[in-house]
Amino acid sequence: MRLQRAEILSRERFGNHLLLRYRWNGCIPQPGQFVMVRTRSFAAALDPFLCRPFFVHDYDGESAALLVEIRGRGTSLLAGEEEEVVVSEPLGRGFDIGNGPVALVGGGVWVSPLKLLSRRLAGRGIPHELYLEIPSTAPEAYGDVISRIFPDADLVPTDDPERAPEKLLARVGDLSRYSAVCASGPLSTLAAVKRAACEQVCVQLAVRERMACANGSCHGCAVPVWDGGGRTYARACISGPVFLAEVLAW
């Protein structure tokens, strides 16, 4: 795996979320692409062993940002004090941007790639609307950061996790108003968006699976897909992480 050193420009911590910005003058990231990343010390020691995948959250021409939920050792190290990360180029296939209008639907930390997507859509003058789920169980800091990052989003409060996707989709309304729906959220949300998909609308879902190589070598990131009528596994790192809803064999 090809990785390069990058200076960390800032870390903002909101509860158990981290907004990490690093200097980036490599390939321009496309919305929905991800990077493999680790801090320098863990790169030198290979401990933890694998790099961690994250969606590119934002990019301004000079720096890239990641929105990270701190979970285990790898993400805790990213939240630490080190001044550099070791990071890959933007990887995988992102969202396909048509002419709009586009609905951006998400929840949890998975809303991350929707920021770069909405920035790109705005830059091209493509009309779009954002619908983000805010569970009542989420820490207050999470709600604050999401409303700061996505000032134009329609934030949908949800109480019951089981009914959350339904409530979110009720707010989005008739999907056929859009030419595309781009979703990145909890699996239940993605599954609900997939079920609601209709023929005229290009529905794209950002999926995640555990990754090791992130270059198609290990077949570790298998996602079930339909291929020529049969069910098979695609590699999320090179054929995704964004898939057309109808391709996913969920």
Partner: peptide, 11 residues
């Protein structure tokens, strides 16, 4: 076709 996910665990 290979095994269903998950297929990897860090150790």
């Amino acid at each position: 076709a290979g095994n269903p996910p998950p297929r990897l665990a860090e150790a």
